[in-house]
């Protein structure tokens, strides 16, 4: 479903963010990407939906090249959902407006249809009563759940998560992870950049470990936790898991 072929990204000759990344993500699979800060994991995620433009290599989503000038990138993006570390809800719109903006403007749905979709999604993430509130009045966990609903509103084939719980207080991490676990069990294809190894163990099919822009370890989840090969990966696991 997603083919990443030998992708490299750099801002200058000294600042190489991604080096020769190759991966294949099947439909229905859950991939967890982890690594230290600056290892390029967020950049890789952003390359998948074209938010970052890389210089070398190719990414194909269902056979469509992300970087090709003939690709309708907006259509492509509407088939993918993304959730950000800092939620990035639009502060000047209500929760309902946040969720219905893209379905109306991009998905060309009517206001009524969009509202119905939004309401059912809010119920799915557990906060239907917040529909008419503004984001700043919600807790971090609630905001992130709204963000997930917003991403799901476009009925994507794949969900991309960029450290979704890193900006949350510990009490709220669980409520967001629960939503993500439910999503995983429903069969959604997911690529999740995270430090939450408990989540990885529960839900992931594969773990990719990145270090300084390179993909240094890629294993199915069991092997990664029990017998990682790469030294840096081993060190990382030691520090993350007490």
């Amino acid at each position: 479903m997603i083919e990443i072929n030998d992708v490299s990204l750099w801002y200058s000759p000294e600042l190489k963010v991604l080096s020769n990344i190759s991966a294949f993500i099947d439909r229905g699979k859950k991939i967890v990407v982890c690594g230290a800060s600056g290892s390029g994991k967020s950049s890789l995620l952003r390359c998948i939906n074209g938010l970052e433009r890389f210089q070398k290599g190719e990414i194909l989503v269902n056979g469509v090249s992300v970087m090709s000038p003939t690709t309708d990138i907006y259509k492509l993006r509407s088939r993918m959902g993304m959730v950000f570390q800092h939620f990035e809800l639009y502060p000047h719109m209500t929760v309902m407006d946040n969720i219905t903006l893209a379905p109306i403007r991009v998905g060309k749905k009517s206001k009524g249809q969009a509202k119905a979709i939004a309401t059912s999604l809010l119920e799915r993430v557990g906060i239907p009563e917040q529909a008419d509130k503004y984001p700043s009045t919600l807790s971090g966990g609630q905001q992130q759940r709204v963000a997930i609903a917003r991403a799901l509103a476009m009925e994507p084939e794949i969900m991309l998560f960029d450290e979704p719980t890193s900006a949350l207080d510990p009490e709220m991490i669980k409520e967001v992870l629960d939503v993500m676990v439910d999503l995983a069990h429903e069969g959604m294809t997911m690529v999740v950049v995270t430090h939450e190894m408990g989540f990885a163990r529960e839900v992931a099919d594969e773990v990719i470990f990145m270090d300084q822009g390179a993909m240094v370890e890629r294993q199915d989840v069991q092997t990664f936790f029990t017998a990682p090969e790469n030294l840096r990966a081993k060190q990382f696991l030691k520090r993350i898991i007490r």
Partner: peptide, 9 residues
């Protein structure tokens, strides 16, 4: 990024 990610031009 959030806006672009949802497919908005």
């Amino acid at each position: 990024r959030a806006a672009f990610a949802s497919g908005l031009t």
